[in-house]
Design a protein around this nucleic acid. Structure first.
Lengths: 212, 212, 212, 212
DNA sequence: GATGAATGAGGGTTCATTCAT
DNA sequence: TATGAATGAACCCTCATTCAT
């Protein structure tokens, strides 16, 4: 590993590598802790223990608890933006397009720890205006108009009986969000299959599979 | 002032009346405070100030902060349960029935402070297992099967093209819940009309107005 | 003490009395602690222990450590202002007037715990701009011009050979201040009699006793 | 770079030179920081940044923060001792001798950064007993008796009307010290000319210029 | 010698809760 | 029932100091 044959790059450096690893360990532990107990109830002591570092080390990498939280959300949700807006309806039926979006959501959010971060965003977001702003700017304000265009065109061409999805593309993901929240509240009484719920919504919108 | 000499009629009595009024003032102030800052960030000092009482007085009426929160949710959401489960499809089309439910939700929840309490339930519920349990037992476990029956029958009779709503009646209210959360996060950037969103969902499910 | 005979006043009230006593106990303990260790090195734990209260109690009476410090200085030095500016030279020779001022200083400052507070003001004042401002406004800006007038008149009438004291009345108290600082630094090696030092300064200015 | 091959002349050596420069840079930065914020409020981080070195480097040159502070005072005030005690009254009038001392103080202390270090000694000295001891041993215990002798002789010869200066030579420098403190507290409201203050003191003691 | 990430003890501050009045 | 001063446990954050590189 000491340059192991490659004549190149030391730039990141041994120290910097270590630093980045520590930072990531803290983010991971923070995700666990914040997910389990929420922002306020999470003690930095726990995060430190979870990351295997001293409490002070957190402050080497993050200004304060709030910043740690915000960078956590950013780190996990940021990369998602590109993926979502990359979806192109090229040659896809409205149903297939909607289905593709839902599948991305199922795979990239519900199937990963991103769902935990997203839940944090939903439940704690009101207390982090700046976070909400970033999220709105980066995700919402890009995705919603994009979907409006696509579904608006489909409706105009008669491929969609209702213009509801064009006016409120939110409806495509709403079930997924509710499922995430349900999971935190009621899963011990009655699990709710988020993917199935989202697919059911598609069935509702476009009729049962093989219909249209 | 002691009511001495007053016939002291009416069992609740002046004192009790006063007590009840104080209790209600505290609940009101608590709703304001918890709605604005969440459970953890709300200081009982603020609640006391908002209610115009001393901090200690809160403890005359509620065992602790958690109990105050739970009783707040119960006080606001409890009465709703009866209303919801009272809805009978007698002689209504599936669409009209769904519409009736949504209208109740719009009127009784979105149109009142209950929406704030519901939001608190959604965002803080994970940290209050007992609350979630009560809510599940009182509302969810009654409403969901009820709706399943109704929409299942409608589907069996061909009045609903998809069985999705029978399997996941959640979809009827999901948009309303998402709108409530949206409001807390993004209303300053882009308001979202919760009622319109719920109606759009009905359009999606049953086709545009006047369709089916 | 329970209203001891006086039929009157409960206004301060038992509770308020207690509160004021606690507040004073904290101020006293703070004076001990700050004097002994300086502002930064003083732990609020020590102040609390010294006052016989819990640490949190300090925050019932003072916003924070800084405020505690400032109110301490104000409480001890404030009342002094009136005394100082009350000195009137009516019918006194310059020497007698100067001597009177020095005597007030010796009695009211050097002879009381005010000297400790004054020392705190001198050594910590640079870090408390607001405190310096108050002290300048309340004491300096009143005393200096007052003394300038008096000694200026004395010089004009030939009662003072030099106009130095008119230009720099500071010189009257300077030895006292230096003695206070000396005490904190060198008293264990060689005590310095502050009163004697101030009187020696008067001798220097006006000639030995019985001279002028 | 290892000096290998270099004649490696001059004992201190390149490395040592570099080391000494670093050490001096740290002392300079420390003076700035301690002067501005006092001992306790100064962070070694700031000193390091000011010196353009890493925090750890400070510990290469100084055992700890306290040592850094003490060596700072010693480095700046040490050389002064010789200068002060070198003053000889040979053939000078008491006034001229006093004036010479004051002039040295004005030039060597007030006119240099030594005044900042001296202020630090005055305001922080109580928390550094060892420092006070050194200062007492090196400066005070030499200067005071020396001056006592000189002014005592002058008084005995009738060249000084009062023996005050013989008993308390402190009075010669006291105004300078007060001016230094004033500067830190009140210069923004009303500047005080330290040199003029000291000269006024001489006028007070010996009569106006050209008098005696 | 120089670095800077990591440490961890320490202390200021908050706030739910208690209780004497 | 109402009060509000007092409590003390809990927790965030700071920063002098260390040490592997």
């Amino acid at each position: 590993m000491r340059g192991s044959g490659s004549r190149s790059a030391r730039p990141p450096g041994r120290r910097a590598e270590k630093g980045a690893a520590t930072r990531q360990a803290i983010l991971d532990a923070a995700l666990d802790a914040f997910s389990a107990k929420g922002f306020a109830a999470t003690r930095l002591d726990d995060v430190a223990r979870g990351a295997g570092v001293a409490k002070g080390t957190i402050y080497v990498h993050f200004r304060d608890k709030e910043t740690l939280f915000e960078e956590l959300v950013r780190a996990y949700l940021g990369p998602l933006v590109g993926t979502l807006t990359a979806s192109q309806p090229t040659g896809l039926s409205p149903r297939a397009f909607a289905r593709a979006i839902v599948d991305v959501f199922v795979r990239e959010v519900l199937g990963t720890r991103r769902k935990d971060v997203l839940r944090l965003g939903l439940t704690e977001g009101a207390r982090f205006p700046e976070l909400a702003q970033i999220y709105y700017r980066e995700v919402i304000s890009k995705a919603v108009p994009h979907l409006r265009l696509v579904f608006g065109a489909a409706h105009a061409q008669g491929a969609l009986r209702s213009d509801a999805l064009a006016r409120f593309p939110h409806l495509l993901v709403a079930p997924g969000l509710v499922a995430i929240i349900w999971d935190a509240l009621f899963s011990r009484f009655e699990p709710l299959d988020a993917a199935a719920l989202m697919h059911a919504q598609i069935d509702l919108i476009f009729g049962p599979e093989g219909d249209a």
